[in-house]
Design a protein around this nucleic acid. Structure first.
Lengths: 231, 231
DNA sequence: GCCCTTAAGATGGGATGCCATATGCAGCGA
DNA sequence: TCGCTGCATATGGCATCCCATCTTAAGGGC
């Protein structure tokens, strides 16, 4: 089996340099996040390059990218190994993400334009609809969109870059964590509070509720990971 | 001229894989921070590898690392180019760093042990001595040590990693920014307030003052960069 | 004299080969 | 039977080669 078809498709779309390494890193990241490569498993350059029909060079670069993202450790003669991901890592990760998204919400609330607010209202309304009809998948997708939207419109590129890097690691937990009904109700209520803060351009309220929101999300992920670990 | 001597020395001490690439990236990072490679200048793989007496491979990896750090842009057929660094970038950077160091101070204040507090007191006293006798160089070094100490003892590895990455970029500004006497007095006073918060294990006060402290520092750097840009 | 064409050089990306070292297993000795 | 030694294998790091593409400049045509 080969991934050459998908590779060709992707490459035509992207003209960025090191597009292949990017593609490989995305493939591997996905497999790590989804547990195909469990923590501790070894990613061998030669093996992956053979599977993907590539030389070692782009695979090697992809592994370096994953290393920079904090997903794997690279040791000589032992191959890259998927790092552990447990409650402790998730706790630390969400602590920083909460602080970062809170900052993003604060900065956005400060200078939000009517157009941007309208787009946010649109996303929020969409999410509420999915919530009311009980469509979990679309609810979570729109939810993620809202979080990303706030970060991307914070006006601070450093926040965007840093957030992107950390979220890649946190997704590993979110994939396992299926929100419980109780948390869902609370989360929706917190989203409502944020919208009010945005409408009032109240940066302190926005920062406060968004940090609280992400902290709660983190706590839920940690709880799920703990339950998972006990099994 | 060759750097082979220094290279050998470094390599004996480090047994980490990709030690050469790390070393090269440190050399280049230093030159970027110090302005030897000004913004917009081109870093050509073949040229650097020739100068350092290495093949292109490790140099290439080093450039990828600098790219991941956000210091350079890599474009095909044009070489890596040092990214601009002006008031706008510094503003965005310090906004995030302030938030991050504030979080670190908050987490440290929560659980700080007597031994850790003693070490911090020691560093603080040392810095105050340098301040009083007007030894600027040692003052700034100890100041940096305090900031790093707080981050490293926050108990959150994600904070440490993220901070390290961002500080590498911010150093570019701090190298240019020589603190003014007015700011110096204010900064020292803010350090005093932090120490009080730490002694009281008052996490909110610690978070508040440390964010304010870093925001002020950022503003000073931005001011200096603006003056520099106007010349 | 100006602009377009074209060819040579520059430059990063990818492929491949060699090397140093760590790992693991097999065989030998006590 | 257990442990130690040594060799084969695995594996990542580095060097080198080729290639596609962009840049640049020179030369010819209008």
């Amino acid at each position: 089996m080969s991934f050459q078809n998908e590779l060709s498709e992707e490459l035509e779309r992207l003209e960025s340099p090191t597009a292949i390494a990017q593609w490989v890193s995305n493939v591997l990241r996905d497999k790590i996040v989804k547990g195909v490569y469990p923590p501790g498993s070894r990613l061998v350059e030669r093996k992956i390059s053979a599977e993907l029909g590539l030389s070692r060079t782009p695979v090697r670069e992809a592994l370096k990218l994953l290393h920079a993202d904090g997903l794997i450790a690279i040791s000589r003669n032992k191959g890259a190994q998927v790092l552990q991901y447990g409650p402790q890592e998730a706790l630390a990760l969400f602590d920083v993400i909460a602080s970062l998204e809170s900052l993003a919400a604060e900065r956005l609330a400060e200078h939000i334009s009517t157009e941007t607010l309208d787009q946010l209202e649109e996303l929020h309304a969409q999410m509420m609809t999915y919530y009311k009809i009980g469509n979990q998948t679309d609810y979570f997708d729109t939810n993620s969109e809202i979080h990303d939207f706030i970060v991307e419109n914070s006006g601070n590129q450093i926040i965007v870059e840093t957030h992107k890097r950390l979220i890649a690691r946190a997704r590993r937990g979110r994939y396992l964590a299926i929100m419980e009904p109780d948390r869902l109700v609370e989360a929706v209520s917190e989203h409502e509070v944020l919208m009010t803060a945005m409408r009032n351009k109240d940066k302190d309220a926005a920062a406060q509720i968004w940090r609280q929101h992400m902290t709660h999300t983190g706590e839920t992920v940690v709880k799920v990971l703990r339950q998972d670990g006990e099994q």
